[in-house]
Amino acid sequence: MMSNLNVKLDKTDRKILEILQSNAKITNAQLSKEIGLSPAPTLERVKKLETSGLIKSYHAKLDTEKIGLGVSTFVQVTLKGHNKRNIDKFLDEINRIEDVIECHHITGSGDFILKVIAKDIASYQKLMLEKVSEIEVVDSLQSMVILATFKDSKVLPIPQ
């Protein structure tokens, strides 16, 4: 799905976006060196990309194992009825559960797919039984435990 860009991206803007996605902690001086501009226009371009909304935020990617989050799952959710009231009710409830780190409205046999992260299987089970399955508009849940992750890129391809 393509949306209209309000900002025209040239080759330099694309390079800035690629670099910042890979290393958001890069200094302006280093970034300017890599794209071949002096620091002032480099900073100006980054600010333009931020204010346009193309750059939404900067995040630190944490090591889930090192912070004690050993279980990641995808959960397919089917609602009791696919109508605006049920969708709004579900989203209101799901947004309050911090262990649900992603929520996507999908096509196919389910209505939503969640990415859930928990300390261990017992914590995951408790979360599902006491929170997610207790949302009144939820009809069914299908869990898929992630055994291993071989690619977890947050770098988006920048269309030409």
Score class of each variant (00 low, 15 high):
residue 3 S to D: 07
residue 6 N to Y: 15
residue 8 K to H: 15
residue 11 K to H: 09
residue 12 T to R: 13
residue 15 K to D: 15
residue 17 L to Q: 06
residue 17 L to G: 03
residue 17 L to F: 10
residue 19 I to C: 06
residue 19 I to H: 07
residue 20 L to N: 02
residue 24 A to L: 04
residue 25 K to I: 04
residue 25 K to E: 12
residue 26 I to C: 03
residue 29 A to L: 05
residue 30 Q to D: 10
residue 33 K to M: 04
residue 35 I to L: 08
residue 36 G to Y: 05
residue 37 L to F: 01
residue 38 S to W: 15
residue 39 P to I: 14
residue 39 P to S: 13
residue 40 A to C: 09
residue 40 A to R: 14
residue 48 K to F: 12
residue 51 T to I: 14
residue 52 S to I: 08
residue 53 G to S: 07
residue 55 I to W: 08
residue 57 S to R: 06
residue 57 S to D: 13
residue 59 H to S: 12
residue 60 A to T: 11
residue 60 A to N: 12
residue 60 A to D: 10
residue 61 K to N: 06
residue 62 L to C: 01
residue 62 L to S: 06
residue 63 D to P: 08
residue 65 E to H: 11
residue 70 G to E: 02
residue 73 T to S: 15
residue 79 L to Y: 09
residue 81 G to P: 01
residue 85 R to S: 04
residue 93 E to P: 01
residue 94 I to C: 02
residue 94 I to V: 14
residue 95 N to A: 03
residue 100 V to D: 05
residue 101 I to F: 14
residue 103 C to W: 05
residue 106 I to F: 07
residue 107 T to D: 04
residue 109 S to Y: 02
residue 112 F to V: 03
residue 112 F to E: 03
residue 117 I to P: 13
residue 121 I to E: 10
residue 124 Y to I: 00
residue 126 K to Y: 09
residue 126 K to S: 15
residue 128 M to V: 15
residue 130 E to Q: 13
residue 132 V to M: 04
residue 133 S to W: 11
residue 136 E to M: 04
residue 141 L to A: 02
residue 141 L to H: 04
residue 142 Q to K: 10
residue 143 S to Q: 04
residue 145 V to M: 07
residue 149 T to K: 11
residue 149 T to S: 13
residue 150 F to S: 11
residue 151 K to I: 00
residue 152 D to E: 09
residue 157 P to F: 12
residue 158 I to A: 00
residue 159 P to W: 12
